[in-house]
Amino acid sequence: MRFRASGDDWVELELPWREDLLGEADRHVLASGPIISLMDMASGLCIWTCKQKFEAIATLDLRVDYQRPARERAAVIGRAECYKLTRSAAFVRGVAHDGDPDDPVANIAGVFMSINAEARRVPQ
């Protein structure tokens, strides 16, 4: 996985096509699992970019809607945007595409929680 670009509240990562990440052995199409990994990673990075600091976060909920399979032997680009940040939660949306962002492979929505030092001191 490699970094492509970022802005104030978004990050773009690229997952190169890899033989061992295929969804079906006889078709050269990426499995859906790596797309979740890609988008989870891009989501985390866009939250840190948005906060302008590194803070431990946990994924609470991640939803992936698959529009179509990725093209054969195509790298998949994941772009995640943090559209709302509260003290404890971060809301993210994004797309995974294989070249054209207007023709996505998948759309995602996620909610993340900050694990900050004060919260950790609260007795369980």
Binding site: S32, I36, A58, T59, L60, D61, L62, R63, V64, D65, Y66, P69
Partner: peptide, 13 residues
């Protein structure tokens, strides 16, 4: 089999 969607809830590390 083709995926339509998946929603994952993370409950613990």
């Amino acid at each position: 089999l083709k995926p339509i969607n998946i929603t994952v809830q993370f409950l613990a590390a």
